[in-house]
Every structure is written in structure tokens, then in C-alpha cells.
Simulated scan of single mutants.
Amino acid sequence: MDVFFNSSASSEMIETAVDGVPDEEVLNDLGAVWDYIYVALASLWLIVGIPGNLMVIISCIVFKEMHTIPMTLATNLAVSDALVASANVATTYLTILYDKAILITNSSLCTFTSILCGLGCVCSMASICNIAINR
């Protein structure tokens, strides 16, 4: 644990361990740090992923030169990537906000998110395969 966290929390965890079991309060503090890191990475994915995919989609719709089969496949890839990004980031925020119990107590949200992510991943793989075949 000291390799990843060279902070007072990790040294406190070693000092307050009783019979090799870390103190629960220290573990909760480390969990909060990971939650902040996870939310920051999800926000970065949202800030970079959604506008980038929207630019690909809009450019393929607006410009007539882009109405080709390879660009249609790239647009399909951008749509599926935006779908996965938005579903994952929304679920990440809800999971962190409701202390990871939202997916356990609300099975319909879990099912809906998994369907969206699964559909997006299958569409992405199909688009990538079609792009490879088209080349």
C-alpha cells in the first residue's frame, strides 16, 4: 500500500493496525481518495470524449465531401463511443454520489447501463471490423 500512497494516511494505517487489520476509518479515507480520482478521470473522459465525438458526427453531417462509406463508419464509431462514454460517466457519478449502493438497490439502472454499454461496445467492434474490411 505504501508504494501507491506515500502519505500520512498510509503510515497511519500501518500504525493503527491491530492484529494485521487496518483501521476502518483510514480505509474509508483511502476510499474517498480513490473516489475523487475516479470522478476526475470520468470528468476528463466526459470533457474530451463527448465533444470530440460530436465534432466527428457534425462534420460528417454538414460537409458533403464527408458523405463516404469510410466516414459513415467513423461516424458510427463516434456515436457508439459517445453512447458508452455518457452511460459510463453518468453511472460513475451516481455510484460515487450514492456511496456505491445505487447499482445494488436499483437493478433497473444497472441493467439499463449494462445494455447501453454492451450495445455501444458491440457497435464499436462492428464498426472497426467494417473499417478494416473496407480498407
Rank of each mutant, 00 (worst) to 15 (best):
F4A: 12
S8N: 05
E12I: 12
M13V: 05
I14G: 11
T16I: 12
D19A: 13
D19Q: 14
D19V: 15
G20E: 08
P22S: 09
P22R: 07
D23P: 02
D23I: 09
D23A: 13
E24T: 15
N28Q: 13
D29T: 11
G31W: 03
W34Y: 14
D35T: 11
D35Y: 04
D35P: 07
D35V: 10
I37A: 12
Y38R: 15
Y38G: 14
A42Q: 05
S43D: 10
L44A: 11
L46N: 02
V48E: 03
P51T: 04
N53E: 03
N53L: 02
L54Q: 03
M55S: 09
V56A: 03
V56M: 04
I57Y: 01
I58T: 13
I58D: 07
S59P: 10
M66A: 14
H67I: 11
T68L: 07
I69L: 13
T75N: 03
L77E: 01
V79K: 01
S80T: 05
S80G: 02
S80V: 03
V84A: 06
V84Q: 02
A85G: 09
A85T: 12
S86K: 02
A87S: 10
N88R: 15
N88K: 15
V89I: 11
V89Q: 00
T91F: 07
T91P: 04
T91V: 14
T91L: 12
Y93M: 10
I96W: 01
K100I: 13
N106M: 06
N106G: 06
L109Q: 02
T111Q: 05
S114L: 08
I115S: 04
I115T: 06
I115P: 00
C117F: 08
L119V: 07
V122S: 03
C123I: 10
M125S: 11
I128Y: 01
N130H: 09
N130K: 07
I131P: 00
A132G: 06
N134M: 08
